[in-house]
Amino acid sequence: MIKKIIAAAAALAVFGAANAGAADFYGTLKKIKDSGTIVVGHRESSVPFAYIGPDNKPIGYSIDLCMKIVDAVAKEVGVDKLNVKLVPVTPQTRIPLIANGNINIECGSTTNNLTRQKQVDYALTTFITGTKILAKKTSGIKEVEDLAGKAIALAQGTTNERAIKNAIKDLGIKDVKILSVKDHAEGFLALETDRVDAYSTDHILLFGLISKAKKPADYEVVGRFVSFDPYALMLPRDDSAMRLVANRTLAGLFRSGEILDIYNKWFMKPIPGGKALNVPAGDTLETNFAVQAFPK
């Protein structure tokens, strides 16, 4: 009789513990565990963060970091291999897709700002850049003030669109024609076909665009930084368990210095489908990595 009770109690204890273990997951992690699938949103023309490579698969710096996080999530929820579903996103779709839960993480070149944090959450900062202008060498544009009387293309839904529009307003630059384009590829097409004199986005992406241009020598990145843009991988809001997994992975990469290997792979060496960007990490970014290398 007593044996039976002990057995029952033990069974209950084991069952209870297993139950408690499963109940530890909530939100995104629970969804991933239940479906065995993680949905990764990625950009398609953000060179070298997330873009479509020569073999038609998304590749890049952010994609590499994301895949490390995907592995960590798989370990966290106790699955050997997660099914990874890749979903292309644009500047307009990325925030609603995260907010409504269609994608679990976004890997691209997304600026972390406080307005966006009302709808989404971010992992640790993985890159730091700012708005600059890409102009044809023949256009004579050297600073944002030189846009007076010129035409510039801006991608809808980017922080750069707002930064340039604000600069034009605040500095009272006259007669600037603005062409709204869908993405970087189209913005550069407008510049290549002489529809506009300049295109503006984050300074690092401009180097990416030049590296893929037909005549890279015709273009230059000019002027001062018009805005400050820290990039981070985007995550669902109110889900600190998911964010913890992401941040633990990133902090580990920062601590071990592995981040610099990944960085150099995409920013210092020739990249698939283009030439090397040759943009060293620099003091700001290296300090950023060091500061965010939280201990275990």
């Binding site: 500047p91 609603p96 709808q119 809808q156 980017t158 669109e161 707002r162 709204s180 384009v181």
Partner: peptide, 23 residues
């Protein structure tokens, strides 16, 4: 809107971009 005309849907997207109140 795909070629940059600021019509109704474009403005909806723009509002979303500025406020993130897309719905």
């Amino acid at each position: 809107l795909t070629i940059g005309v600021a019509e109704l849907l474009y403005q909806a997207r723009q509002i979303e971009n500025y406020t993130f109140q897309g719905f």
